[in-house]
Amino acid sequence: MRIFRYKEDSRLYLGAITESGEAYRLDAPDLMTLVHAARAAGLSTAAYVTALAGGLAPIEAPAEALNLATPLDAPEVWAAGVTYQRSREARNYEATEGRLDADTFYDKVYEAERPELFMKSTAARTVGPGEPVCLRSDSSWQVPEAELGLVLDRAGAIVGYTAGNDMSCRDIEGENPLYLPQAKIWKRSCSIGPYVRLAETVDDPYALAIACRIYRDGVKVVDETANTGQLKRKLEELVAFLKRDNELFDGTVLLTGTCLVPPNQFTLASGDRIEIEIEGIGTLTNTAIGTHELESAQAPLRV
């Protein structure tokens, strides 16, 4: 079962797609309200939503045709790094300018007990399906990072899974590891969605196919695939470190790292369409745009 939000008549609605594929509008303000209401009723969230949908007529249009928004307002989005071997290789390439004949601190992170965790985004900086993601103006080597996202409650329980795009500046991070925040955090540098798959409806989160496709002028220029089974660390391990001496908020999202890195010669350009697909969750689509172009589009008209 998948939860989503969509805009209609200037309002934001919560919806659910049942296992039969039908979509329903739910009388609830947000995902976490559903989660807590289900717990109070002694039900799983999926069972609670099924009961709610039982007396409703399905939405006439398929969910994909609706004006989808972020499936939740994540108060914080965190991210894990160097959790896949491919990510380790890419980070080493950046840090050594292509010389891979020596160990780096990324090797230490990959093998260490403590994972790399960093704050990625806030609700105000995070965009949903169909919205533009921004290219940083002071970087010349930028890529999307396709990642499985964990939706957490305040105690750190995994309530669902979503797709995430952790936009990254490989040149800035490669220049100096202390530049990581600037290589990762800027406006519209994170997208999530289009759905949240409820955790209890996923048989094995380590058996999900992930794909990243990038189109330029209608031509597919990147097509990478992987599987969450390649993840080195357990999901609960990442969550345990995130909540250690830390405060979590309902709806926090933790991106679990990427195994899909475009070729080293590739960098995003304005107008590129990015598709991130995770099996059983859906396809998150965004278009890259320069920050100056976004500012021009958002500038008020002068009269």
Rank of each mutant, 00 (worst) to 15 (best):
Y93E: 01
Q298K: 13
D9N: 15
L268W: 03
A207N: 15
A69Y: 15
L152I: 02
F105I: 11
P129R: 14
A183G: 15
A41D: 13
E145I: 10
A57N: 13
A123Q: 10
A102K: 12
E111W: 02
S121P: 04
R136Q: 06
A57H: 11
N227E: 03
V219F: 14
R39W: 05
G251Y: 07
S139C: 11
A199N: 08
I172A: 05
I281H: 05
V109I: 15
T225R: 07
Q298D: 12
V239Q: 12
E277F: 15
R5D: 03
A209C: 07
C212V: 10
D217P: 07
D223V: 02
P262C: 07
G229E: 00
Y48R: 12
A57D: 14
T291M: 15
G193A: 05
T96K: 01
A269Q: 14
G156A: 10
E76W: 00
A183P: 09
R188F: 11
V196L: 13
W186I: 03
D250L: 11
R125Q: 13
L150C: 05
R170M: 02
S140T: 10
T283F: 13
E247V: 15
R39T: 05
V49S: 05
L43V: 03
Q298G: 01
H36Y: 15
V219S: 06
V261R: 04
A23C: 06
M32G: 02
R213L: 10
E237D: 15
G174I: 08
L34D: 02
Y195I: 00
G290W: 08
I3M: 14
L100G: 05
A65H: 14
G282S: 10
L180N: 09
D138L: 09
G81L: 14
R213D: 09
I17K: 12
K120W: 14
T201I: 10
S191D: 08
E173T: 05
L100D: 00
A61T: 01
A53Y: 04
I3Q: 08
G81E: 12
V151W: 04
A51T: 07
G21H: 00
E277D: 13
I3V: 13
I278R: 01
S137T: 07
V133A: 07
K234L: 07
L26K: 11
P132E: 04
L72R: 08
A63M: 13
R213H: 08
P300I: 09
A226M: 09
L148Q: 03
G271S: 13
V196P: 14
S87E: 14
D153E: 06
I276N: 03
I3A: 06
L294G: 04
E64H: 14
E279S: 13
R91L: 03
D73S: 10
A297N: 11
